[in-house]
Design a protein around this nucleic acid. Structure first.
Lengths: 224, 224
DNA sequence: CGCTGAATTGACGGACATCAAGATGTGTGG
DNA sequence: CCACACATCTTGATGTCCGTCAATTCAGCG
């Protein structure tokens, strides 16, 4: 679905995931944006701020999230290189966005993209597809939230494996807390589930952030 | 946000919720659709079917849902008079849609709406807003799914109250099972929560399908 | 009236949260 | 290179919310 190009970029100075991806998917925003860098945990935009821009990740990773009144945090989505985010907003953003790690991001004025879309029927279609894909992703995520802890974690691993270029092992740019807040679980439950998967041989934990999927079929069965 | 018009329609022959709403919001599809009727529990479209149409509810109520492999059903959304659905699809539908009760629905060819949108910048914007609103609704729903049972039910009641024209009491067109599948709970938990709310005086159950909200503030506090 | 599906209520168990402690890793400064 | 501080991750013990199973009540309808 996503097209790729063999372009390499200057590596951000101290990004721990910089080796993740040299394939930079082209997209509707491919050539029109200004490049910006965000440090680890730096805010890219905040909830309720006016939604002026669209964003495409070059390197790094970004999370969007919302806070509940009681202090819990729900992570809505993780975005990886090539992904576009900031679409979810009407006039104002409905979620906040932060860099998970040091990240490089293309930034494009929404208005200019939309205006251009009125002329180019192709761009218009791509923006539409973008919104639809985002919608489907969130729906999928809703589905996950009603499953058991095992199913959620298995699904998460498969999703990440599918997205970070499915090599032998998956690099997780985000912390256990991030994963927990994404899956609606606690950090302890996520950790326990990881070790349980490792003990049953379905995965191997090279490091806590690097996971080898040894039996995707079994994970898929769990994923229900 | 939604515009309204004083238009009355011929009532569908045996719709139990026909009295719900004489205000029929106009929308992008207001004048261009063919009208169809669907009986209680009748399928409007199925998962994986090609997405040829957009739909706007005139009377009745519709649920969209997805089945998990283990037989559980997750209801993605309920649609009430004026609401437009069927937007969530790319080439094929990602969810199935069924009439909750006998319903009257306007049906419009997607392609024709999209084509027209390329000419009318206004329609194009409205379709875009539609997708964004749908996205925000699903995100909101995701948020709900990580809360406690009390919070989910309270949130559901407030949502429905806000949508069915906030008179003194709310008519729920859907069964407890529907509510449970929407909130990711069991029918028993939903029922218990209703009675618990009633005992604490926050609501009154005129009938099992008709709820009076006696203390919205308290419900809102629960909603966290 | 009795039949049928929907809703309610109760008893019980299990999955996950909570609380608390320990282990591992990572960056900093001597 | 080591030592220390601090964050992240793991592991254990205990509690609780909600799911499961089962029985009862209620509403609609022939």
């Amino acid at each position: 679905m996503r097209t790729t190009a063999n372009v390499t970029f200057a590596m951000p100075s101290r990004s721990p995931v910089s080796a993740l991806s040299t394939r930079i998917p082209e997209g509707p925003l491919g050539l029109m944006g200004a490049s910006m860098r965000f440090g680890r945990n730096e805010e890219i935009y905040g909830e309720d701020e006016p939604a002026e821009f669209l964003y495409q990740i070059v390197t790094g990773a970004v999370r969007t999230y919302r806070m509940l009144d009681d202090g819990r945090r729900q992570i809505v989505a993780f975005y990886l290189p090539g992904d576009i985010f900031g679409v979810e907003a009407g006039e104002a953003h409905l979620a906040s966005a932060e860099a998970v790690n040091d990240s490089q991001v293309l930034v494009v004025k929404r208005a200019s993209a939309m205006a251009r879309a009125e002329l180019q029927r192709d761009l218009s279609k791509q923006l539409w597809m973008l919104a639809v894909r985002e919608l489907q992703r969130v729906q999928q995520h809703s589905l996950a939230l009603i499953k058991s802890a095992d199913e959620r974690v298995a699904g998460f691993l498969l999703e990440m494996a599918g997205r970070c270029g499915s090599s032998a092992s998956v690099d997780l740019p985000m912390s256990r807390q991030d994963i927990a807040d994404y899956l609606g679980l606690t950090i302890e439950t996520v950790s326990r589930t990881f070790t349980q998967f490792a003990q049953s041989g379905m995965i191997a934990l090279e490091t806590s952030r690097r996971v080898q999927l040894r039996n995707r079929v079994a994970l898929g069965r769990l994923n229900a």
